[in-house]
Design a protein around this nucleic acid. Structure first.
Lengths: 194, 194
DNA sequence: CGCAAATTGGACCGATCGGTCAAGACGTTT
DNA sequence: AAACGTCTTGACCGATCGGTCCAATTTGCG
């Protein structure tokens, strides 16, 4: 019984989907309106500009994805189990996006790393920082579980870059293979870090 | 005494610079022509379409960068020395790009990972594969130098993703910090892989 | 109900998009 | 000098860009 989405919500959903696929400047306001079944007048009633819509889309994606990740860490289980669920989340979320839209997406941020207004860039940087913080805390927990004497700062940098790289290359290759191996890869890395 | 660049070369240079900064669809043919001091007619005399120009730019960037990397491996020194020079090349080339144009570029491919014609995507994938091959061969050489019994396939995957991730994040953060640490990071990784 | 406020529809704007074209400039060759 | 192929010029095309505007409609509420 979810109530039917408002015009604003439909526009936001369509814009997110289309910009994730084609980037900011390649998606026109007209095309978004058509996909959302809305009119241009409604668009500019709901959003001040195309740039404002982008900011709203970035916030919404992080609200959902960040929420799912935080829910993992606020849920039950050991630090190690939570971290593994976090890694699996990358796989399942990318798998679901591919199933829904037919191509490997990679990070939302990546499609928006080029030619976006400064306000959007700042948001993306902040969200990336927030995710790195979650990662750092999680890895420290995993090392504590193991009683392992490793350099967590070094590990979080390597793992953070590894995740970014895997996502970027997965999108470029339009293949989930490397994403599927990501959890194993990261666990191998932690195993060797002592 | 380098002879003055042809119109085609000026267009190609301007297009590469502008598309690296802003992506494919955000850079207009008119803007490229103005930056290159050329007319639109000349543009369409030199290139069949905007998509053709993109393909030419991708080929040119790889011709130069791939050439520099291959020159390292064809030059003198041990496999380990060559690999270290390869890693340093990422630092120096990104440093030079930043000095010339005022921002951290990341991989050329990354600015073009979104909304490019299929012909360009195929080229990018091929070039990325070629670079991975160089990397694999280099890492095998380094391990041979060390008499190390490590899994070179695992290492090349991790290091390849690490490089992609560092480049992507360096651009997003507009900072060379992580790039500067890349050589050390990779060497640490190889040290721990046994 | 009745009325105002919120929302929507769609025509319209000047600017810009990728691309075309015919006419001319220019250096060679004969 | 005439004839040639190559490159350059700048006006021009229909389509589309982000954005505006206001009348018409729907909605929330006394």
């Amino acid at each position: 019984m979810s109530k039917k989405p408002s015009t604003r919500e439909r526009i936001l959903e369509a814009a997110t989907r289309m910009m994730w696929a084609d980037g900011y400047s390649a998606v026109s306001v007209d095309a978004i309106c058509e996909a959302a079944g809305a009119n241009k007048g409604s668009f500019y009633h709901a959003f001040g500009s195309k740039a404002d819509l982008l900011v709203a889309a970035i916030e919404e994606v992080w609200r959902v994805n960040g929420g799912e990740i935080r829910a993992i860490y606020e849920g039950p289980g050991s630090a190690t189990e939570k971290f593994e669920r976090h890694l699996d989340w990358f796989v399942t979320s990318q798998r679901r996006l591919q199933a829904d839209h037919g191509y490997v997406h990679g990070h939302f941020h990546m499609a928006l790393s080029v030619n976006v207004p400064e306000s959007a860039l700042a948001l993306i940087r902040a969200q990336h920082g927030a995710h790195q913080d979650l990662l750092l805390h999680a890895i420290e927990g995993v090392l504590a579980d193991r009683g392992q004497q490793a350099d967590s700062a070094w590990l979080v940098i390597v793992i953070g870059h590894l995740i970014s790289g895997v996502m970027a290359e997965a999108r470029l290759a339009n293949s989930l293979d490397q994403v599927e191996h990501l959890p194993t890869l990261v666990k191998d890395l932690i195993d060797r870090a002592h």
